[in-house]
Design a protein around this nucleic acid. Structure first.
Lengths: 136, 136
DNA sequence: GCTGCATGGTCTACTATTTAGATCAAGGAC
DNA sequence: GTCCTTGATCTAAATAGTAGACCATGCAGC
């Protein structure tokens, strides 16, 4: 079950879904950036170019595989640029492209909302929502 | 090995993480709305109040379990309001709260970006990114 | 009177994704 | 010679998500 001959996304990172049969572009784009890590990676890169492990340290709790995969996807989508320096030990730097930078604005709006409404959300969470069907 | 600082108790819907030891509110909020489904649910509810199955049909490919879980979480976070009508067959309607509605603006910005840049992303995807170590 | 349908979920069994940790390659420090 | 560094990748195990069966309830049809 674990290593059966199914070549899925783990074994073939290159063979991602390239067919754009998504009816709506929003859905298509949200499928990519709406995951756990992409926003965080883009936010981290918003502060400037970074190396792989530096990025991992900045985000804190991302596994190397997911960092690698997320970066590859963002690069593939044209949001992130990857530069390899032929040094030893190897150095690889990641930076936002123009397209990637254009995303910072919308993301900042989102982050601002999160910041502004964090307290309200905390309050809602602390209020025990008992749905015992209290019908007046 | 068991729990090293990061507990995301999604497996236990009742016992959600109520401790706010997240250093940054952005991270805390993004952990909730930055998943596959929350955005889509909020977007769907943005058009008006809806019943459970209606919502599922609108989104299309969400499992009932995830829809239920996502709605419960959004309700718990105070973004969505749940109204049960004591009828048979049972009727449950979901609607955005004021807090939930306040999120529509930021989301629209995001959706607009997705819409505007969908083509650029498609172009980037179609361009085969071969990283054969071509250093300048 | 009994069966079947509709709704809003939940439970279970399976599948897919994510993680943790080992490993790799290659040059430099010791 | 041995170990350290970096940027990954591979494997095995844990976790998250899916599809579909199932539940309760009142009414329509037989």
């Amino acid at each position: 079950m674990t290593e059966t001959g199914k070549e899925k996304a783990i074994t073939m990172p290159e063979a991602e879904n390239n067919t754009f049969d998504q009816p709506c572009p929003i859905r298509d784009v949200l499928d990519r950036i709406g995951d756990q890590w992409s926003l965080l990676v883009l936010e981290a890169l918003g502060t400037g170019r970074m190396r792989f492990n530096e990025l991992g340290r900045e985000i804190g709790d991302i596994s190397r595989q997911m960092l690698s995969r997320t970066l590859r996807r963002l690069e593939h989508d044209g949001l992130v640029d990857r530069t390899i320096f032929a040094e030893v030990p190897p150095r690889v730097e990641y930076a936002l492209t123009d397209l990637g930078r254009s995303f910072l604005g919308p993301m900042q709006v989102l982050v601002k909302w999160a910041d502004d409404n964090h307290q309200a959300i905390c309050n809602a969470r602390l209020r025990i929502n008992k749905h015992d069907g209290s019908q007046p």
